[in-house]
Design a protein around this nucleic acid. Structure first.
Length: 474
RNA sequence: GCCCCCAUCGUCUAGUGGUUAGGACGACACUCUUUCAAGGUGUAAACACCGGUUCGAUUCCGGUUGGGGGCGCCA
């Protein structure tokens, strides 16, 4: 009870706009977002585009779109290329204090040095012989390096892993900027996190080795140290770090494939975190309520698309018919005029296919026969192959007759089922219903014939049955 | 080569100094059934290894092995 004001929780996601938002980055963003929400804190988006060569604003847009799609709004936005003055100022300060110097060695020199060290089984590092010279702010030849004089262990307490220590002497004199206006990652991150009052740095485990360098810069600048939490990595099926060669890694690609944002988020949070109970399906709100860094896993997690797909099915099934019908529209663009003409028909189709969809995109293929006459082989009409052509024709003709006696007004799933079933029960369900279903859908697998007939309407149904008869008689 | 991190079913994971080691995905079987899907029921499937501590280790400690990450004038 010291009466201290509790520090505001502020987290950030800091992607480089060098490609579309990666699944791994999105997952880090999610942990940051949820942790901030949980603690009534703030979540910040910072675009790390100090590498002008590789950065592209189209990727900045992609990142924003992807985060918004996933439902992670940010409270503040920054772009590092807008903050060059700030970095310059801090660089000059370090230069004045002798913490940073101009290293005249070329890239080639350093590569050579490193290879030499590795051969001699020494740790690769660069301890510059000019570290006590070249301290002017004026650009000289070479790049700016941090003069590391710490040989002892650099220790920090990771919220997920506990105490992590690195030997300071292993770091050498590391780079902080290409020139006074071109800061490098380790330096810009420290300045920004401090100036933006980031309280918790939650990031992927791949960034853990940078932490010691960042701590050194922090103390040289007199900044407070944020809390660190290093998340386990998302792994490809071969257990290596997930990368482009493993297929879809960008968030928006999954949107295109027809995965729902809710399913993505639900799936991602379970990669490395687990709630107390056994329930695995929950909303963002519930995740926020239940989240705790203490329950974050330490080992890497394989990205299992099968489970994502299962989750997507769960969310599709849970969705209201209205919402799903709308969400599906972009995937059936080519039928939009037909859908607008008969919105109720579209809803019926959606209701029918709802339980059969793994991704939204699949609707385009699954609902095809409702909009276009199906093409199929004659053989498909035979139930279990042992049916005779005569038998099929007889049934289909009877069915055509039965169906034609149903008035337009009575035409509907239940009436059709009742009339057709009473015939099918006499004649054998499979022998009657299979050819009927195939004549309507043209598929080996589809919903039942009554539902399809209902949606198709009387005349189209009878017409398709007639065409099936013709096909058999060919 | 140097440094760091990690280790429960195939995968995501729960869990404990004494448990029939639990759940989910996937797989398989049965059921439902005109097909598919969904649903229901069930089955197979894991504590990496070796020491130590302990009455007792999957759990705690050490080592081995294995896996991953990092070692940029990228982030």
């Amino acid at each position: 009870m010291t009466g201290q004001v509790k520090e505001k929780i502020r987290t950030r996601i800091a992607p480089a706009p060098t490609g579309p938002l990666h699944i791994g980055t999105a997952r880090s963003a999610l942990f940051n977002y949820i942790f901030a929400q949980k603690n009534q804190g703030e979540f910040i988006l910072r675009i790390e585009d100090t590498d002008a060569e590789r950065s592209d604003s189209v990727f900045e847009e992609d990142i924003k779109n992807a985060l918004e799609w996933l439902g992670m709004g940010w409270d503040e936005f920054y772009r590092q290329s807008d903050r060059l003055d700030i970095y310059e100022e801090h660089l000059k300060r370090l230069l004045e204090r002798g913490n940073v110097f101009w290293c005249p060695h070329s890239e080639k020199d350093l590569v050579k040095e490193r290879i030499h060290q590795m051969k001699k089984k020494e740790p690769p590092r660069h301890v510059c012989q000019f570290r006590d010279e070249h301290l002017d702010a004026q650009p000289e030849k070479g790049i700016l390096r941090f003069k590391n004089e710490v040989a002892n262990d650099i220790v920090f307490n990771d919220l997920i892993r506990g105490e992590v220590r690195t030997k300071g002497e292993l770091l050498g004199d590391f780079s902080v900027a290409k020139d006074i206006r071109s800061p490098l990652y380790n330096f810009a991150v420290v300045v920004d996190d401090a100036l933006m009052n980031i309280s918790h740095v939650i990031r992927g485990e791949d960034l853990m080795p940078n932490t010691a360098k960042q701590i050194l810069i922090q103390s040289a600048l007199g900044f407070a140290r944020p809390a660190f939490a290093h998340l386990p990595l998302i792994l490809a099926p071969d257990r290596s770090k997930l990368s482009k060669r493993h297929g879809a890694t960008s968030v928006l690609e999954y949107k295109k494939m027809g995965y729902l944002a809710e399913a993505m988020v639900n799936f991602m949070i379970l990669l490395g975190w687990h709630p107390v109970g056994e329930e695995e399906i929950f909303t963002m709100k519930e995740m926020i309520e239940q989240f705790s860094l203490k329950r974050v896993q330490k080992g890497g997690a394989v990205f299992n698309i099968e489970k994502l797909s299962w989750m997507n099915r769960q969310y599709i099934k849970k969705m209201s018919l209205e919402d799903l019908s709308e969400k599906l529209r972009p995937y059936v663009y080519r039928w939009s005029s037909a859908i607008e003409k008969e919105p109720e028909k579209w809803k019926k189709i959606v209701e029918l296919e709802k339980e059969r969809l793994t991704t939204l995109k699949e609707i385009g293929e699954k609902a095809l026969y409702f909009f276009e006459e199906p093409y199929y082989s004659r053989e498909l009409l035979f139930w279990k192959q042992k049916q005779t052509p005569e038998n099929i024709v007889r049934h289909l003709e009877s069915l055509a007759h039965i169906l034609s006696e149903i008035t337009e007004k009575e035409w509907g799933r239940n009436v059709i089922e009742k009339k057709v079933t009473s015939y099918a029960d006499r004649e054998g369900r499979g022998e009657v219903l299979w050819p009927l279903r195939v004549s309507l859908s043209g598929r080996e697998a589809s919903p039942g014939p009554f539902e399809i007939a209902d949606i198709l309407g009387k005349s189209e149904t009878i017409s398709r049955v007639g065409k099936a008869i013709k096909l058999i008689l060919q």
